[in-house]
């Protein structure tokens, strides 16, 4: 078998393993949908100001929860599953086999991307059906592109963060401590309209805020252009590069003592 077909074959087995872990699969899907329902129940009908006009808060929450879906399926899931596999010795075993390591990573990341696409589709559909949100039309290419870059970035960061996770027991703590504060200050749970301007500028340099901003633009019904936020996308790409460098330098294939 050539390495490309080996990499594609990995996707099949990674998918099998993902869907057979009911707890992980359940939380990956339930969390974002739960937040979508709760926030919309609480604030969904309020008027909400966006560049170019006034709409409802649900127009804010649907792209926000899409951002949450991506961070949870890519960043959180990749970080946890890689740490778990590392502690189990699976990564070491893979490295002792003829499977190229990139093919293994490809399989795992693609599986998470597939999960992300499914989850984003569910969230967007729920947004249309239950909350009357307009799907991106003209801005769809920008939406898809942002989603792709964002998912890839958060998968890479998920791999990079494992270099500071000592063991699988510590994984949830490290992962949540690194992502939850960012979610709170990045227009995911709470609109940042009233936040101090220094905080807003500060969050711009982290990957979550630019991702959410770019998604919000794509979902803005008053957006007149194509909706590409190249500055935001640029920040994401920069984080992807940083994550890659960290992973190359510090990633461990063996359990840590």
């Amino acid at each position: 078998m050539n390495t490309l077909s080996l990499a594609i074959r990995q996707i099949k087995y990674e998918n099998l393993a993902f869907w057979r872990n009911p707890v992980s699969a359940f939380f990956t899907f339930i969390f974002p949908l739960m937040f979508l329902a709760i926030f919309n129940l609480l604030f969904g009908n309020r008027e909400f100001e966006v560049p170019g006009g006034v709409t409802h808060t649900s127009t804010f929450y649907v792209p926000s929860i899409i951002a949450l879906s991506v961070t949870s399926a890519c960043y959180t899931n990749v970080a946890m599953s890689m740490t778990f596999s590392r502690d189990q010795g699976l990564l070491k075993r893979i490295r002792g086999s003829p499977l190229p390591v990139w093919a293994f990573l490809f399989g795992r990341i693609t599986t998470m991307l597939m999960v992300t696409i499914l989850l984003v589709t569910i969230v967007a559909t729920a947004g249309v059906v239950f909350y009357g949100v307009d799907l991106p039309g003209k801005t769809f290419p920008a939406f898809a592109f942002t989603l792709l870059i964002g998912s890839a970035t958060f998968c890479i960061l998920g791999i990079a963060i494992t270099s500071v996770i000592p063991n699988a027991q510590a994984a949830p703590a490290v992962v949540n401590a690194s992502i939850l504060p960012l979610l709170f200050v990045s227009d995911v749970f709470i609109p940042m309209n009233d936040a101090p301007s220094w905080l807003i500028s500060f969050t711009q340099i982290f990957p979550v805020k630019p991702f959410t901003s770019a998604l919000h633009t794509a979902f803005n019904p008053f957006e007149t252009g194509l909706g590409f936020e190249f500055t935001d996308i640029g920040v994401l790409v920069l984080w992807a590069v940083i994550g890659t460098l960290i992973a190359i330098r510090f990633f461990s294939w063996e359990p840590r003592q």
């Binding site: 087995y13 099998l16 393993a17 993902f18 057979r20 872990n21 596999s85 189990q88 010795g89 699976l90 990564l91 070491k92 075993r93 893979i94 002792g96 359990p255």
Partner: peptide
């Protein structure tokens, strides 16, 4: 290896 490394699911 000394430690089992296979996918549990």
């Amino acid at each position: 290896l000394q430690k089992t490394g296979v996918e549990p699911y």
